[in-house]
Amino acid sequence: MSEPFLPGWFTLDDKAPQLLGSRCTSCGTYYFPKLAAGFCRNPDCNGEVFEEAPLSRRGRLWSFTNAAYQPPEPYPQVEKDRFQPFAIAAVELEQEKMIVLGQVVAGTGVESLKAGMAMELVLEPLSDGKLVWKWKPTK
């Protein structure tokens, strides 16, 4: 199994990977990425204790787009004529009540996406071989 592009951001379970967020033990608010400073951002909460929280790996498609041109660095670069446009999804997680962005798996373009579709989290390598989370349409 290849390396993640950032360690500790998601589990490396290749069947059912999960994003690793954090959760305030006082008010239950989730954070992704994990909160860097240990203070809850809910204005009504003084929480300073957080637990690691694997996030729901399924959600509903909120909106989507694509990258028709190769993004600039630090996106791993390929030669211009080898660049394949990819779709990008914004997926709403019901339990966490938050929207998380990510690429859509290779081979699935915007023409096959529709808001409200069920999506699940998978891992795929970027062109530098490093693993990243991606969203994939599911039943």
């Binding site: 305030c24 008010c27 239950g28 608010t29 989730y30 954070y31 992704f32 990425p33 951002r41 809910n42 204005p43 009504d44 909460c45 966490e96 009540k97 938050m98 929207i99 998380v100 962005l101 990510g102």
Partner: peptide, 11 residues
């Protein structure tokens, strides 16, 4: 890359 979580207070 994500919104706030609206678990504790509304979005």
């Amino acid at each position: 890359i994500a919104t706030d979580s609206a678990v504790a207070v509304p979005a």
